[in-house]
Design a binder for these strands. Structure first.
Lengths: 174, 174
DNA sequence: GTCTATATTCGGATAGAC
DNA sequence: GTCTATCCGAATATAGAC
Protein backbone atom coordinates (compact mmCIF):
# COMPACT_ATOMS: atom_id res chain seq x y z
CA UNK A 1 0.00 0.00 0.00
CA UNK A 2 1.53 3.29 -1.08
CA UNK A 3 -1.32 5.78 -0.84
CA UNK A 4 -0.96 7.06 2.68
CA UNK A 5 -4.29 8.83 2.71
CA UNK A 6 -5.97 5.53 1.91
CA UNK A 7 -3.85 3.71 4.45
CA UNK A 8 -5.03 6.10 7.15
CA UNK A 9 -8.62 5.39 6.16
CA UNK A 10 -8.16 1.62 6.22
CA UNK A 11 -6.38 1.69 9.53
CA UNK A 12 -8.94 3.97 11.13
CA UNK A 13 -11.74 1.73 9.87
CA UNK A 14 -10.13 -1.31 11.44
CA UNK A 15 -9.53 0.43 14.76
CA UNK A 16 -12.91 2.17 14.96
CA UNK A 17 -14.65 -1.09 14.07
CA UNK A 18 -12.90 -2.90 16.90
CA UNK A 19 -12.69 -0.27 19.62
CA UNK A 20 -15.30 2.34 18.73
CA UNK A 21 -14.86 5.96 17.77
CA UNK A 22 -14.15 7.34 21.22
CA UNK A 23 -11.98 4.35 22.02
CA UNK A 24 -9.32 5.17 19.43
CA UNK A 25 -6.95 8.15 19.45
CA UNK A 26 -5.50 9.81 16.38
CA UNK A 27 -2.11 8.98 17.83
CA UNK A 28 -3.00 5.29 17.75
CA UNK A 29 -4.27 5.53 14.19
CA UNK A 30 -1.08 7.24 13.06
CA UNK A 31 1.25 4.74 14.68
CA UNK A 32 -0.68 1.73 13.37
CA UNK A 33 -0.77 3.23 9.90
CA UNK A 34 2.90 4.11 10.20
CA UNK A 35 2.39 7.74 9.29
CA UNK A 36 2.84 10.91 11.27
CA UNK A 37 -0.09 12.10 13.31
CA UNK A 38 -0.08 15.47 11.59
CA UNK A 39 -0.74 13.83 8.24
CA UNK A 40 -4.16 12.71 9.38
CA UNK A 41 -5.18 16.33 9.77
CA UNK A 42 -3.73 17.29 6.38
CA UNK A 43 -5.92 14.74 4.62
CA UNK A 44 -8.98 15.00 6.83
CA UNK A 45 -10.41 18.08 8.47
CA UNK A 46 -10.42 16.46 11.89
CA UNK A 47 -11.10 13.14 13.57
CA UNK A 48 -14.80 13.43 12.88
CA UNK A 49 -14.06 14.14 9.22
CA UNK A 50 -12.07 10.93 9.05
CA UNK A 51 -15.02 9.02 10.45
CA UNK A 52 -17.34 10.69 7.94
CA UNK A 53 -15.16 9.55 5.07
CA UNK A 54 -15.27 5.99 6.36
CA UNK A 55 -19.03 6.06 6.83
CA UNK A 56 -19.47 7.42 3.32
CA UNK A 57 -17.66 4.37 1.95
CA UNK A 58 -19.58 2.07 4.22
CA UNK A 59 -22.94 3.35 3.06
CA UNK A 60 -21.92 2.95 -0.56
CA UNK A 61 -20.96 -0.67 0.02
CA UNK A 62 -24.20 -1.31 1.86
CA UNK A 63 -26.20 0.24 -0.97
CA UNK A 64 -24.62 -2.15 -3.48
CA UNK A 65 -25.48 -5.13 -1.31
CA UNK A 66 -29.08 -4.06 -0.87
CA UNK A 67 -29.52 -3.14 -4.52
CA UNK A 68 -29.22 -6.81 -5.42
CA UNK A 69 -32.21 -7.58 -3.24
CA UNK A 70 -34.27 -4.54 -4.12
CA UNK A 71 -34.08 -5.17 -7.84
CA UNK A 72 -34.95 -8.86 -7.48
CA UNK A 73 -38.28 -9.69 -9.13
CA UNK A 74 -38.97 -13.13 -7.66
CA UNK A 75 -40.48 -12.81 -4.15
CA UNK A 76 -39.02 -16.13 -3.02
CA UNK A 77 -35.60 -15.00 -4.17
CA UNK A 78 -36.05 -11.79 -2.20
CA UNK A 79 -36.52 -13.81 0.97
CA UNK A 80 -33.70 -16.19 0.11
CA UNK A 81 -31.27 -13.38 -0.56
CA UNK A 82 -32.31 -11.52 2.58
CA UNK A 83 -31.95 -14.52 4.86
CA UNK A 84 -28.60 -15.58 3.46
CA UNK A 85 -27.28 -12.01 3.42
CA UNK A 86 -25.52 -12.18 6.80
CA UNK A 87 -23.94 -15.52 5.83
CA UNK A 88 -22.64 -14.32 2.51
CA UNK A 89 -20.71 -11.41 3.98
CA UNK A 90 -17.14 -11.13 2.75
CA UNK A 91 -14.93 -11.42 5.84
CA UNK A 92 -12.80 -8.71 4.28
CA UNK A 93 -15.65 -6.32 4.83
CA UNK A 94 -16.53 -7.38 8.35
CA UNK A 95 -15.04 -4.16 9.68
CA UNK A 96 -17.61 -2.14 7.79
CA UNK A 97 -20.51 -4.08 9.31
CA UNK A 98 -18.98 -4.16 12.73
CA UNK A 99 -18.58 -0.39 12.57
CA UNK A 100 -22.24 0.05 11.71
CA UNK A 101 -23.32 -1.89 14.78
CA UNK A 102 -20.82 -0.18 17.01
CA UNK A 103 -21.74 3.34 15.93
CA UNK A 104 -25.45 2.64 15.95
CA UNK A 105 -25.12 2.41 19.70
CA UNK A 106 -22.08 4.52 20.45
CA UNK A 107 -23.03 7.57 18.44
CA UNK A 108 -26.68 6.82 17.69
CA UNK A 109 -26.03 6.69 13.97
CA UNK A 110 -28.84 4.43 12.85
CA UNK A 111 -28.79 4.32 9.08
CA UNK A 112 -32.45 3.44 9.46
CA UNK A 113 -33.60 5.52 6.52
CA UNK A 114 -31.23 3.57 4.30
CA UNK A 115 -33.07 0.42 5.32
CA UNK A 116 -36.52 1.60 4.29
CA UNK A 117 -36.28 0.27 0.70
CA UNK A 118 -35.37 -3.13 2.14
CA UNK A 119 -38.38 -3.08 4.43
CA UNK A 120 -40.59 -2.13 1.52
CA UNK A 121 -39.20 -4.88 -0.67
CA UNK A 122 -39.68 -7.52 2.01
CA UNK A 123 -43.22 -6.32 2.58
CA UNK A 124 -43.82 -6.62 -1.16
CA UNK A 125 -42.39 -10.14 -1.20
CA UNK A 126 -44.57 -11.31 1.69
CA UNK A 127 -47.59 -9.77 -0.02
CA UNK A 128 -46.83 -11.64 -3.23
CA UNK A 129 -46.49 -14.87 -1.29
CA UNK A 130 -49.93 -14.39 0.27
CA UNK A 131 -48.93 -13.79 3.87
CA UNK A 132 -51.71 -12.29 5.99
CA UNK A 133 -49.68 -9.52 7.61
CA UNK A 134 -46.84 -8.71 5.23
CA UNK A 135 -45.69 -5.55 7.03
CA UNK A 136 -45.26 -7.33 10.31
CA UNK A 137 -43.68 -10.37 8.71
CA UNK A 138 -41.18 -8.04 7.09
CA UNK A 139 -40.45 -6.32 10.37
CA UNK A 140 -39.92 -9.63 12.16
CA UNK A 141 -37.64 -11.00 9.47
CA UNK A 142 -35.58 -7.84 9.54
CA UNK A 143 -35.29 -8.14 13.29
CA UNK A 144 -34.06 -11.69 12.87
CA UNK A 145 -31.58 -10.73 10.17
CA UNK A 146 -30.27 -7.83 12.22
CA UNK A 147 -29.78 -9.91 15.32
CA UNK A 148 -28.25 -12.83 13.42
CA UNK A 149 -25.84 -10.40 11.79
CA UNK A 150 -24.92 -9.06 15.19
CA UNK A 151 -24.38 -12.60 16.44
CA UNK A 152 -22.04 -13.35 13.56
CA UNK A 153 -20.02 -10.22 14.20
CA UNK A 154 -19.74 -10.89 17.91
CA UNK A 155 -19.37 -14.65 18.06
CA UNK A 156 -18.49 -15.71 14.55
CA UNK A 157 -20.42 -17.30 11.72
CA UNK A 158 -20.30 -20.75 13.31
CA UNK A 159 -22.49 -19.52 16.16
CA UNK A 160 -25.32 -18.76 13.72
CA UNK A 161 -24.69 -21.14 10.82
CA UNK A 162 -27.29 -23.67 11.90
CA UNK A 163 -29.98 -21.04 11.72
CA UNK A 164 -29.52 -20.42 8.01
CA UNK A 165 -31.12 -23.62 6.73
CA UNK A 166 -33.67 -23.53 9.51
CA UNK A 167 -34.81 -20.08 8.44
CA UNK A 168 -34.81 -20.97 4.75
CA UNK A 169 -37.05 -23.91 5.57
CA UNK A 170 -39.27 -21.89 7.87
CA UNK A 171 -39.92 -19.40 5.09
CA UNK A 172 -40.06 -22.19 2.48
CA UNK A 173 -37.46 -20.76 0.17
CA UNK A 174 -34.79 -23.46 0.29
CA UNK B 1 -31.67 13.23 46.65
CA UNK B 2 -29.22 13.67 49.51
CA UNK B 3 -26.89 10.69 49.21
CA UNK B 4 -24.18 12.02 46.97
CA UNK B 5 -22.59 8.65 46.37
CA UNK B 6 -25.90 7.41 45.03
CA UNK B 7 -26.39 10.57 43.02
CA UNK B 8 -23.05 10.03 41.32
CA UNK B 9 -24.13 6.52 40.40
CA UNK B 10 -27.48 7.64 39.01
CA UNK B 11 -25.93 10.45 37.02
CA UNK B 12 -23.19 8.25 35.62
CA UNK B 13 -25.76 5.64 34.63
CA UNK B 14 -27.79 8.21 32.74
CA UNK B 15 -24.76 9.66 30.97
CA UNK B 16 -23.13 6.31 30.16
CA UNK B 17 -26.44 5.01 28.87
CA UNK B 18 -26.80 7.95 26.53
CA UNK B 19 -23.24 8.65 25.43
CA UNK B 20 -21.31 5.49 26.15
CA UNK B 21 -18.48 4.88 28.59
CA UNK B 22 -15.71 6.54 26.61
CA UNK B 23 -18.04 9.35 25.61
CA UNK B 24 -18.44 10.68 29.15
CA UNK B 25 -15.75 12.30 31.29
CA UNK B 26 -15.62 12.20 35.07
CA UNK B 27 -15.68 15.99 34.90
CA UNK B 28 -19.03 15.83 33.11
CA UNK B 29 -20.42 13.35 35.61
CA UNK B 30 -19.38 15.56 38.51
CA UNK B 31 -20.89 18.72 37.11
CA UNK B 32 -24.18 17.03 36.18
CA UNK B 33 -24.39 15.44 39.60
CA UNK B 34 -23.44 18.75 41.18
CA UNK B 35 -20.60 17.30 43.20
CA UNK B 36 -16.87 17.84 43.04
CA UNK B 37 -14.93 15.67 40.67
CA UNK B 38 -12.68 14.47 43.47
CA UNK B 39 -15.64 12.97 45.29
CA UNK B 40 -16.13 10.43 42.54
CA UNK B 41 -12.72 8.98 43.31
CA UNK B 42 -13.38 8.94 47.02
CA UNK B 43 -16.44 6.76 46.55
CA UNK B 44 -15.22 4.70 43.63
CA UNK B 45 -11.72 3.42 42.94
CA UNK B 46 -11.66 4.94 39.49
CA UNK B 47 -13.89 5.51 36.48
CA UNK B 48 -13.95 1.81 35.69
CA UNK B 49 -14.93 1.06 39.27
CA UNK B 50 -17.87 3.39 38.89
CA UNK B 51 -18.97 1.52 35.80
CA UNK B 52 -18.58 -1.79 37.59
CA UNK B 53 -20.86 -0.63 40.37
CA UNK B 54 -23.49 0.34 37.81
CA UNK B 55 -23.20 -2.95 35.97
CA UNK B 56 -23.49 -4.84 39.21
CA UNK B 57 -26.86 -3.18 39.83
CA UNK B 58 -27.91 -3.77 36.24
CA UNK B 59 -27.18 -7.47 36.40
CA UNK B 60 -29.14 -7.80 39.60
CA UNK B 61 -32.16 -6.12 38.04
CA UNK B 62 -31.87 -8.33 34.97
CA UNK B 63 -31.64 -11.45 37.11
CA UNK B 64 -34.90 -10.58 38.84
CA UNK B 65 -36.64 -10.10 35.52
CA UNK B 66 -35.37 -13.38 34.12
CA UNK B 67 -36.08 -15.30 37.29
CA UNK B 68 -39.80 -14.81 36.72
CA UNK B 69 -39.50 -16.60 33.38
CA UNK B 70 -37.06 -19.28 34.45
CA UNK B 71 -39.22 -20.44 37.34
CA UNK B 72 -42.39 -20.51 35.24
CA UNK B 73 -43.76 -24.04 34.87
CA UNK B 74 -46.25 -23.57 32.03
CA UNK B 75 -44.44 -23.65 28.65
CA UNK B 76 -47.00 -21.36 27.04
CA UNK B 77 -46.53 -18.89 29.83
CA UNK B 78 -42.78 -19.03 29.29
CA UNK B 79 -43.27 -17.91 25.70
CA UNK B 80 -45.84 -15.28 26.66
CA UNK B 81 -43.62 -13.79 29.32
CA UNK B 82 -40.60 -13.82 27.04
CA UNK B 83 -42.37 -12.14 24.14
CA UNK B 84 -43.99 -9.46 26.28
CA UNK B 85 -40.78 -8.85 28.23
CA UNK B 86 -39.56 -5.92 26.12
CA UNK B 87 -43.00 -4.31 26.29
CA UNK B 88 -43.31 -4.58 30.03
CA UNK B 89 -40.08 -2.71 30.73
CA UNK B 90 -40.36 0.09 33.26
CA UNK B 91 -39.35 3.31 31.47
CA UNK B 92 -37.59 4.30 34.67
CA UNK B 93 -35.14 1.52 34.02
CA UNK B 94 -34.58 2.18 30.35
CA UNK B 95 -31.12 3.54 31.10
CA UNK B 96 -30.08 0.17 32.44
CA UNK B 97 -31.14 -1.63 29.27
CA UNK B 98 -29.77 1.05 27.03
CA UNK B 99 -26.43 0.72 28.80
CA UNK B 100 -26.38 -3.03 28.18
CA UNK B 101 -26.80 -2.53 24.45
CA UNK B 102 -24.27 0.27 24.34
CA UNK B 103 -21.59 -1.61 26.24
CA UNK B 104 -22.18 -4.82 24.39
CA UNK B 105 -20.79 -3.06 21.34
CA UNK B 106 -18.57 -0.40 22.84
CA UNK B 107 -16.68 -2.56 25.29
CA UNK B 108 -17.71 -6.00 24.05
CA UNK B 109 -19.37 -6.79 27.35
CA UNK B 110 -21.91 -9.32 26.22
CA UNK B 111 -23.60 -10.67 29.31
CA UNK B 112 -24.18 -13.71 27.14
CA UNK B 113 -23.50 -16.20 29.92
CA UNK B 114 -26.25 -14.59 31.98
CA UNK B 115 -28.65 -15.35 29.14
CA UNK B 116 -27.92 -19.07 29.00
CA UNK B 117 -30.63 -20.02 31.53
CA UNK B 118 -33.14 -18.09 29.38
CA UNK B 119 -32.05 -19.96 26.28
CA UNK B 120 -32.37 -23.25 28.12
CA UNK B 121 -35.81 -22.38 29.41
CA UNK B 122 -37.06 -21.37 25.98
CA UNK B 123 -35.67 -24.58 24.51
CA UNK B 124 -37.49 -26.50 27.20
CA UNK B 125 -40.74 -24.66 26.47
CA UNK B 126 -40.53 -25.36 22.74
CA UNK B 127 -39.78 -28.99 23.48
CA UNK B 128 -42.84 -29.25 25.71
CA UNK B 129 -44.96 -27.68 22.99
CA UNK B 130 -43.81 -30.29 20.49
CA UNK B 131 -41.77 -28.09 18.17
CA UNK B 132 -39.48 -30.04 15.83
CA UNK B 133 -36.33 -27.99 16.42
CA UNK B 134 -36.65 -26.46 19.88
CA UNK B 135 -33.06 -25.23 20.11
CA UNK B 136 -33.30 -23.28 16.89
CA UNK B 137 -36.77 -21.98 17.70
CA UNK B 138 -35.38 -20.70 20.99
CA UNK B 139 -32.45 -19.04 19.26
CA UNK B 140 -34.73 -17.34 16.71
CA UNK B 141 -37.14 -16.10 19.34
CA UNK B 142 -34.28 -14.71 21.38
CA UNK B 143 -32.99 -12.93 18.30
CA UNK B 144 -36.42 -11.40 17.79
CA UNK B 145 -36.71 -10.34 21.41
CA UNK B 146 -33.24 -8.84 21.38
CA UNK B 147 -33.84 -6.85 18.24
CA UNK B 148 -37.32 -5.74 19.31
CA UNK B 149 -35.83 -4.55 22.59
CA UNK B 150 -33.22 -2.61 20.69
CA UNK B 151 -35.93 -1.08 18.53
CA UNK B 152 -37.85 0.07 21.58
CA UNK B 153 -34.76 1.65 23.10
CA UNK B 154 -33.85 3.43 19.89
CA UNK B 155 -37.22 4.40 18.46
CA UNK B 156 -39.63 4.02 21.33
CA UNK B 157 -42.23 1.43 22.25
CA UNK B 158 -44.71 2.70 19.65
CA UNK B 159 -42.37 1.61 16.86
CA UNK B 160 -42.64 -2.01 17.99
CA UNK B 161 -46.02 -2.18 19.72
CA UNK B 162 -47.82 -3.71 16.75
CA UNK B 163 -45.45 -6.67 16.82
CA UNK B 164 -46.47 -7.78 20.28
CA UNK B 165 -49.87 -9.22 19.44
CA UNK B 166 -48.58 -10.46 16.13
CA UNK B 167 -45.87 -12.48 17.86
CA UNK B 168 -48.22 -13.76 20.54
CA UNK B 169 -50.50 -15.01 17.80
CA UNK B 170 -47.67 -16.48 15.76
CA UNK B 171 -46.56 -18.53 18.74
CA UNK B 172 -50.18 -19.22 19.73
CA UNK B 173 -49.90 -18.00 23.29
CA UNK B 174 -52.34 -15.10 23.25
C1' DG C 1 2.81 15.19 0.52
C1' DT C 2 5.02 14.23 4.63
C1' DC C 3 7.43 14.87 8.95
C1' DT C 4 8.87 17.09 13.44
C1' DA C 5 7.83 19.99 16.88
C1' DT C 6 4.66 22.33 19.49
C1' DA C 7 0.41 24.48 21.29
C1' DT C 8 -3.63 23.70 23.89
C1' DT C 9 -7.17 21.63 25.95
C1' DC C 10 -9.04 17.68 28.29
C1' DG C 11 -9.29 13.64 31.19
C1' DG C 12 -8.29 10.73 35.08
C1' DA C 13 -6.57 10.81 39.41
C1' DT C 14 -4.34 12.54 44.00
C1' DA C 15 -3.28 15.62 48.13
C1' DG C 16 -4.63 18.23 51.66
C1' DA C 17 -7.82 21.32 54.00
C1' DC C 18 -12.24 21.62 56.23
C1' DG D 1 -17.88 13.21 53.57
C1' DT D 2 -16.90 16.86 50.68
C1' DC D 3 -14.41 20.51 48.33
C1' DT D 4 -10.44 23.05 46.17
C1' DA D 5 -6.31 22.94 44.08
C1' DT D 6 -3.24 20.62 41.41
C1' DC D 7 -0.45 17.14 38.80
C1' DC D 8 0.47 14.57 34.77
C1' DG D 9 -0.23 12.30 30.77
C1' DA D 10 -3.12 11.92 26.74
C1' DA D 11 -5.71 13.70 22.93
C1' DT D 12 -6.85 16.88 19.24
C1' DA D 13 -5.07 20.00 16.34
C1' DT D 14 -1.70 23.50 14.18
C1' DA D 15 2.80 25.55 12.39
C1' DG D 16 6.62 25.34 9.84
C1' DA D 17 10.39 22.92 7.63
C1' DC D 18 11.63 19.71 3.91
Amino acid sequence: MIDRKEKILQTALRLFANHGYNGVSTNKIASEAEVSEGLIFRHYKNKQGLLDAILQQAFEKAAILYADIITEQDPKQVLWKSITLPFRGDPKEYDFWRLQFKLKWELEISGKEKMQPMTDKLTWAFTQLGYQEPEKEAQILQHIIESVSGGILKDGMASQEALKDFLLEKYRVN
